[in-house]
Simulated assay, not measured.
Amino acid sequence: MRDTSEPLLRIEGLRTVFRTHGGEITAVDGVDLSVPRGRTLGIVGESGCGKSVLSLSVMRLVAHPGRIAAGRVLLDGRDLLQVSSAEMRDVRGSQVAMIFQEPMTSLNPVHTVGFQITEAMRAHDTRASAAELRERAIEALNRVRIPAPDRRFDEYPHQLSGGMRQRVMIAMALSCKPKLLIADEPTTALDVTVQAQILDLLRDLQAETGMSIILITHDLGVVAEMADEVAVMYAGRVVERAEAGAIFGDPMHPYTLGLLGSVPRLDEERETLLAIEGSVPPPFALPKGCRFHPRCPFAAPECRSEQPPLREIVPGHSAACLRAPVEAFVA
Rank of each mutant, 00 (worst) to 15 (best):
G48I: 04
D79Y: 04
C321D: 04
R151F: 03
I170L: 11
P308A: 08
D90R: 15
V31L: 10
D219A: 05
I138E: 15
D79F: 09
V35D: 05
M1F: 14
D79G: 04
H218T: 07
R311A: 15
S175L: 06
P7G: 00
I170R: 09
M211F: 09
P103D: 08
A319H: 10
D191F: 08
E312P: 03
D200I: 06
L107F: 08
S262Y: 06
E102Y: 07
T118C: 11
H21W: 14
L274M: 15
P325M: 01
I99V: 14
A227E: 11
G50S: 00
P294I: 03
R203S: 12
G71N: 10
M121W: 04
T193G: 11
L56A: 10
A97E: 02
T105Y: 09
P264S: 07
E135F: 05
M233K: 05
A331I: 13
V192R: 02
P297M: 12
D79M: 06
C303K: 06
R241D: 07
S94Q: 08
Q159N: 11
A231I: 08
I214H: 00
L75M: 08
V96R: 00
E208I: 04
G77I: 06
S85R: 15
A242W: 05
L160N: 12
L54E: 03
P301T: 04
R19D: 14
S279K: 02
A235R: 07
A231R: 10
R2Y: 14
R311L: 14
P186M: 09
D32V: 02
A189W: 11
P287E: 02
G316H: 12
V326W: 02
G261S: 14
K51N: 03
R145S: 15
F100H: 12
K179Q: 14
T126S: 13
E302K: 13
L33D: 00
I25F: 01
Y234G: 11
S55R: 01
G278V: 08
V222Q: 09
C321N: 04
Q95P: 03
G38Y: 00
K177H: 15
H293Q: 13
V35A: 03
L80Y: 06
D250P: 03
R78L: 12
V28D: 06
V239P: 05
I117F: 00
R92N: 00
C290I: 04
L220H: 02
L74G: 01
P294F: 06
S262M: 09
H253K: 08
S94C: 01
V238T: 11
P7Q: 06
Q101I: 01
M252R: 15
P325A: 06
H21I: 13
M121N: 07
E132G: 11
R78T: 13
R134I: 00
E102A: 10
V44E: 05
G114T: 10
S318H: 10
P297R: 13
E87W: 06
L41S: 11
G42H: 01
C321P: 01
A171C: 08
A131I: 03
L274F: 15
